[in-house]
C-alpha cells in the first residue's frame, strides 16, 4: 500500500503530440467506408453490421459498429452502422454513408434524404425507389424473397444481405467473410447460413 505522494510536481499527462494534418493526396487515398444498414427490428440488420465489422477486423482494418433502435424488439425502424477504415476512427457514427441498404420501404423513405451522390445503395427488390434518392449507383436485389424461396427461411435475409454487400464492396475475401458469419450464427444453423451467404453473393452480378 503506497502512501500519498507528497510531491507537487506536475504529474504526467497522457499526451498525443500535435500531428500535422494529413496531406491532401493522402486524404484522397483514404478509403474510409461508412456503411448504414436499415430495416425493421427483427430483420437482423444489427447482426449484419456486426458480421461486417468482424470481417473488417479479419482484413486488418479499424472498425466501429453501433446501432440506433426504438423500444420494440420486433417491428419499428432499425438503423445499424459500421465504419471501416485504415486509420483509427474518431467519431463513431456514420455521417455521410458511402454505402446504404434498406430492407423496408419505411426505412428507405426515412433515411433516403440523408444520402449523397457518392453513396452506393442496395435496395430490396420489393421497394419503390423514391424520386429524391441521390446515389452513385443503385443495386436492386431480391434479398427478402431469396431468403424465403432459395434458402428456405425468411430469418436468413440478413446473411443473404451480407453476401450481397461483400460482393458489391469487396470488403474481404470470401473465406474471411465465411469465418465472420460462422462465428456469429447460432449452433445448428451453420448449413442454412452458409447457403444464405452463397445465395447473397450470387445476387450481385460481377
Amino acid at each position: 500500500m503506497s502512501t500519498a505522494k507528497k510531491t507537487t510536481e506536475t504529474k504526467e499527462v497522457k499526451k498525443a503530440a500535435a500531428k500535422a494534418p494529413a496531406a491532401k493526396a493522402d486524404k484522397a487515398e483514404r478509403t474510409k467506408m461508412e456503411i448504414r444498414l436499415t430495416g425493421s427490428g427483427g430483420q437482423g440488420v444489427i447482426l449484419a453490421t456486426i458480421i461486417l465489422a468482424e470481417a473488417g477486423i479479419e482484413a486488418g482494418k479499424y472498425v466501429a459498429q453501433s446501432q440506433a433502435y426504438g423500444p420494440e424488439a420486433r417491428g419499428g425502424s432499425c438503423k445499424a452502422e459500421v465504419i471501416i477504415d485504415e486509420k483509427p476512427i474518431g467519431f463513431t457514427k456514420v455521417e455521410k454513408p458511402t454505402f446504404f441498404m434498406a430492407l423496408t420501404q419505411k426505412a428507405l423513405d426515412q433515411y433516403a434524404p440523408g444520402l449523397s451522390k457518392h453513396c452506393i445503395v442496395l435496395l430490396d427488390s420489393s421497394l419503390e425507389t423514391p424520386e429524391c434518392l441521390l446515389a452513385n449507383k443503385v443495386y436492386k436485389a431480391p434479398i427478402l424473397e431469396s431468403a424465403i424461396k432459395e434458402v428456405g427461411k425468411a430469418m436468413t435475409a440478413n446473411i443473404v444481405a451480407v453476401g450481397a454487400i461483400n460482393a458489391i464492396l469487396n470488403l474481404v475475401s470470401d473465406e474471411d467473410l465465411h469465418t465472420a458469419v460462422m462465428s456469429h450464427v447460432p449452433k445448428g444453423t451453420e448449413e442454412l447460413n452458409e447457403k444464405a451467404l452463397k445465395v447473397g453473393m450470387k445476387l450481385i452480378k460481377k
Partner: peptide
Amino acid sequence: EKNYDDIVQCEEVMCDDA
C-alpha cells in the same frame, strides 16, 4: 483528495501549440 496525483488521469491531444 490528497492522493490526486495517484488517482487523476487526463489526456491532452494536440494541445502543445493549441
